[in-house]
Design a protein around this nucleic acid. Sequence first.
DNA 1: CGGTAAGCGAGACGGTACGTCTTGTCTTATT
DNA 2: AATAAGACAAGACGTACCGTCTCGCTTACCG
Lengths: 171, 171, 171, 171
Amino acid sequence: MEIAAERGPEGLTMDGVAERAGVSKETLYRWWRSKTEVLLEAISEYGAQAVQVPATGSLTRDLEIFMRDTSAALDPPTRRILRALATGAAADLDAARQVRDQFLTRRRAALAAILEPARDRGELPAATSIVTLLDLVFGSLWYRLVFDTGPLDQDWADGVTGAITAMTGGV
Amino acid sequence: MEIAAERGPEGLTMDGVAERAGVSKETLYRWWRSKTEVLLEAISEYGAQAVQVPATGSLTRDLEIFMRDTSAALDPPTRRILRALATGAAADLDAARQVRDQFLTRRRAALAAILEPARDRGELPAATSIVTLLDLVFGSLWYRLVFDTGPLDQDWADGVTGAITAMTGGV
Amino acid sequence: MEIAAERGPEGLTMDGVAERAGVSKETLYRWWRSKTEVLLEAISEYGAQAVQVPATGSLTRDLEIFMRDTSAALDPPTRRILRALATGAAADLDAARQVRDQFLTRRRAALAAILEPARDRGELPAATSIVTLLDLVFGSLWYRLVFDTGPLDQDWADGVTGAITAMTGGV
Amino acid sequence: MEIAAERGPEGLTMDGVAERAGVSKETLYRWWRSKTEVLLEAISEYGAQAVQVPATGSLTRDLEIFMRDTSAALDPPTRRILRALATGAAADLDAARQVRDQFLTRRRAALAAILEPARDRGELPAATSIVTLLDLVFGSLWYRLVFDTGPLDQDWADGVTGAITAMTGGV
DNA sequence: CGGTAAGCGAGACGGTACGTCTTGTCTTATT
DNA sequence: AATAAGACAAGACGTACCGTCTCGCTTACCG
């Protein structure tokens, strides 16, 4: 985590991790088969603190809180770590699967826990595909992360919140 | 392109490109400073054929056409090429900038050329942030590409189309 | 022994021995401090059958028997074992000392038991240095073993026998 | 050479050579496929100075000179180098072949150039096998080197000389 | 007879070298 | 002057073996 946070994807090497951890490469490979596995486990310890799922009863309010929390968590070191994760996933479908199953899933579930009740309450059209919405929201996040197309600040958070809530339409 | 299409991000090396091209590495580096630059130039030749911008006068129809075209273009070889691009961008902010400026921009402009008139016609709320919508749509695409979270087929295309047009609300 | 006989010096590892013996490395190292010690002990069990010391009363005849016996013992598996021993000895003076004291000594004594009486009987010049002769004979053997310069067959045995007995000169 | 001379077989590593030579391991492996090849080439440069072949007309005298020269060359650093060579040869038949062809051959030829004329002159029995004698002499040398069974000093040189000339018998 | 200590298997560990791979720079000779 | 050919330093990769270590388990001896 330290190395990924300090130096980003390029500076993260198994040799480096082994040295920093005061551990032999042999041991590293015994427990984790790849850089991605190491990172995932490191993150899961770090991010074990359950993702907050606001439940104010209002989709707009819930989303706003969730998105702002998310945005607030994305300081530069964290962004470097996530970019390292994305690098691994983009390069190798196997790593992608691991990231998906062991990392993305959790956050997707949290957001789904906001969206589904909202749809049931009628705040989103009944036909709305939650999966599509999740892709849109998290896609926006990773897109900005990977391609550095813009900040992931409060404005961004509010923009996404606004777009999603706009789907409530005239309802 | 051939190599990236055949072998994906991992199998794409400068040595490999030089050999396949019957060119020395020296020459490769003289003209392009990095793998990303090589790929970008290769893609731009390939994808020079201007992106079609439908203009049927209906946001829903335009979007549907655009998304289906996009989806249709994403065959497995193309996906491997794009993943190679994402790998480079995620690993290095400088590469990210290049991908952004020389590749993403074009497609963003095409979609913007659909969304902006639609907003002007009142098919989207006047306050709608086009940039946010672009991030959502392309984010969804790259998210699925990078993390292999699902197919980029017609269902996906229609799902995104539906979500965006849902924002037109009761209008 | 099995491993050394099958795979030779390169394939002989402490891990391998431990596994084949159904024993933990811990135990291996408790009883023997090095590969060389393990091999030496294994060989001493194997080769415990006393070295035959012919005593026909004729140097030529005794030597011939001894050399032919020696040659006959040197089948390929045995050669691999001896090469493993030589590898250890050449690499490390401490191992060399152990091989010398616990292995070479025995065979040297056997040959000396042939040469000394012969010298006393006048079949070798009185000034002959037995040690030098031992070095010449066994040197020839190990030289061929280590550098694979030629077979250790009956021709070789007879050649050495002939050379040594030639020293009896016109006597 | 420096490393082999200073630290002997155990301390000689490809990594170490690369570092000391200010060269990358890649380059090392491009030119030499193994430690043995590196050593052989290093030695051949070093030892390029032709081996002196005395030709006094007397076998005893020639041998004495040759053996004393040989003995004098075997200072501790040289012995460490030669033990490194023997370690490689003993461990691997392929390395053994290389050592034989590129190193041992030269010295064998030099000694043969002494022995053959002597035999022709009648100083050795006509039936004497030169090859056997070469094995005996050099075997004695390497035996002492590998197993550290005794010094390779002038006494040793004279002992071997004496043994060989003893074969001239009553002539 | 029940408690304790010694020896054991299992195997993790830090360390080090291995041999391979890719990167980006460079030199040389050719055209 | 641009090129191909390819050597090169740098350094990460993933593997192998070494010798040490810690853990429980099982015997066998002793109180």
